[in-house]
Computed example of a mutant assay.
Amino acid sequence: MNLIDQNIMERRSIKKFKVDAVSTEEIIELLNVAKWAPNHKVNEPWRFQLYTGAGKEKFVQAFLEAMKTADGETPAKALNKADYFRSIPLHLVVIMPEDPRQRRWDEDYGAISSMLQNFQLAAWERGIGMIWRSNDWIYNPVFREAIGVQPGEKIVATMMIGYPAHIPAKQERTDIREKLTIISE
């Protein structure tokens, strides 16, 4: 098995992180590698917001505002999640334009998904783990406005990034032969 194959098969989504800081410059380097993902017309349909250090609190507060109930209360579950978010070294919000043309939208989303997989694999090779989150609250207008996502933009992911404190066991995948139809004539 070559190194690329091994890296693809060993990468895991990380939920528990060490408190050790991850260098902003290293994230920029990784994104500069990841940007080589295929994308139609090389339009690079992505932009990013990286929350680190004290800046993470803006992300956390946006989340908490979005979680408030109609009576203005913040559920205990949201408060616990906010503490968890504070413990994660970095949060990367990945944003794309919402093109009204379905084909362009599909191509842009495919390009960003490819770029994010490149990002995860390159980071994994350096010992950095992450999880790609696309929870309901990223669609909440309160959260979107609080972090400066404009109308006509889509949050594709919130990538939670750090050095793994725990690497989950591999979950088996279905043999591709069970999902493959071969048409030879």
Rank of each mutant, 00 (worst) to 15 (best):
F48K: 01
E29I: 11
M67N: 04
M130E: 01
I28C: 07
Y84F: 10
G129T: 05
G127I: 13
G129E: 00
I161S: 02
V42D: 11
V142C: 01
K41M: 12
I4Y: 12
G148A: 09
M160K: 14
M96W: 07
R126T: 05
I167F: 01
Y109I: 03
I4D: 09
I88G: 12
P141S: 03
I88Q: 13
D108A: 11
A21G: 14
G127L: 07
R47A: 08
E73N: 09
A122K: 05
G127H: 12
A66H: 09
I112F: 03
M9K: 15
V22E: 08
P151R: 09
E29W: 02
G53Q: 08
P151V: 10
P97L: 09
H91V: 04
M96R: 14
I88D: 10
P38H: 08
S13F: 10
I176E: 15
E44P: 00
S13K: 15
Q117H: 08
T174A: 06
W46I: 06
L180Q: 09
I183G: 00
A111D: 13
N32L: 04
R126N: 03
A157Y: 12
P168R: 13
T158A: 07
R47D: 07
V149C: 01
K15T: 06
T181L: 13
K18R: 15
Y163N: 11
F143S: 06
G53I: 02
P100M: 03
E57G: 07
T52M: 02
A66I: 10
K154N: 12
L92E: 06
N2K: 04
D106E: 14
K15E: 02
I8A: 13
D108G: 12
G127F: 10
A165H: 11
W137C: 01
G127A: 00
F63N: 00
D136C: 00
K58E: 10
